[in-house]
Amino acid sequence: MSFTRTTEQSSNYDNLEQMPVAELLKGINAEDKTVPLAVEKALPQIEALTNQVVERMKKGGRLFYIGAGTSGRLGIVDASECPPTFGVPFDLVVGLIAGGDTAIRKAVEFAEDDREQAWKDLEEYAIHNKDIVIGIAASGTTPYVIGGLAMCNKNGVVTGCITCNTGSPLAQTAQYPVEVVTGPEFVTGSSRMKAGTAQKLVLNMISTATMIQLGRVKGNKMVDMQLSNHKLVERGTKMIMDELNITEGEAAALLEKHKNVRKAIESYGNR
């Protein structure tokens, strides 16, 4: 089966170095506007994958993201934001990147070309068949990610992926593929741009919808968020005020006592 990486096709723009800043920004913005529409076309695939994530996590499983380069970093960002936002354990959603933690800040040469390493990385977390692994690769051809998902399949671990090409080897490997076709980049091949934006949007959707389904949001509020700075303490206090119709002082006292918005609200109702 033939496979064309549209993420690598030549940009619709040329002579970029001759453009003034205003024209460059206008072109980038025009391309960025197409990304949400591409994500919308993939909603059925995103729904199918998210349902699997919810099902696995309700059974005590964990969510792993594996990727290389920009894709790996995006997975790590999404994973790292789940504990402070939703109050879940730090090891419930885990992001792994080819080349290890060093690669978060600095590219590690040829790390993404190792088909065996992702499974080794997952084994360090005692990966098991209650877990789910999502491979992230704009190209859909990254050996680190494909090899990791292939081994997951062999070992009974549910797999999904997020890629920006149709019919890629990665999508063919994943049990629940998500293909968001963003087309050529403004700068040819720079998949940190539209493809990266698309991946970030999909990751937001998967993790947020999952956490809501797991009961980590009340109404539309992050009642389990970690109170790690003054801004969040103020937000938590306001949540309690609005929910219980009490004064700021009463709300602040409840939050100080219980250290958690949900517990503060529940304790008030149980008086």
Score class of each variant (00 low, 15 high):
residue 267 S to W: 09
residue 9 Q to L: 13
residue 69 G to S: 10
residue 161 C to P: 04
residue 269 G to F: 15
residue 196 G to K: 02
residue 67 G to C: 04
residue 34 T to P: 03
residue 54 V to N: 03
residue 229 N to W: 14
residue 91 D to T: 15
residue 113 D to S: 07
residue 140 G to I: 02
residue 125 Y to D: 07
residue 176 Y to T: 02
residue 209 A to C: 13
residue 17 E to K: 11
residue 262 R to I: 03
residue 30 A to L: 07
residue 193 M to L: 15
residue 130 K to G: 05
residue 3 F to A: 03
residue 250 E to Y: 05
residue 260 N to P: 06
residue 161 C to E: 03
residue 41 K to S: 09
residue 196 G to C: 05
residue 224 D to H: 14
residue 262 R to N: 04
residue 41 K to D: 08
residue 13 Y to A: 07
residue 206 I to R: 02
residue 149 L to W: 11
residue 165 N to G: 05
residue 115 R to E: 07
residue 223 V to M: 13
residue 77 V to N: 06
residue 230 H to F: 06
residue 249 G to C: 07
residue 53 V to N: 03
residue 130 K to C: 04
residue 249 G to H: 10
residue 9 Q to A: 12
residue 166 T to Q: 09
residue 230 H to E: 15
residue 234 E to H: 10
residue 189 G to P: 00
residue 65 Y to I: 06
residue 203 L to H: 05
residue 135 G to I: 00
residue 44 P to W: 03
residue 131 D to M: 13
residue 46 I to E: 01
residue 214 L to R: 08
residue 172 Q to F: 01
residue 37 L to C: 02
residue 83 P to H: 10
residue 113 D to P: 13
residue 252 A to L: 14
residue 240 I to T: 05
residue 104 I to Y: 03
residue 162 I to R: 00
residue 234 E to L: 15
residue 20 P to Y: 01
residue 253 A to S: 11
residue 169 P to N: 08
residue 77 V to I: 13
residue 118 A to C: 10
residue 105 R to N: 14
residue 253 A to E: 03
residue 12 N to M: 12
residue 172 Q to A: 14
residue 120 K to Y: 06
residue 25 L to H: 01
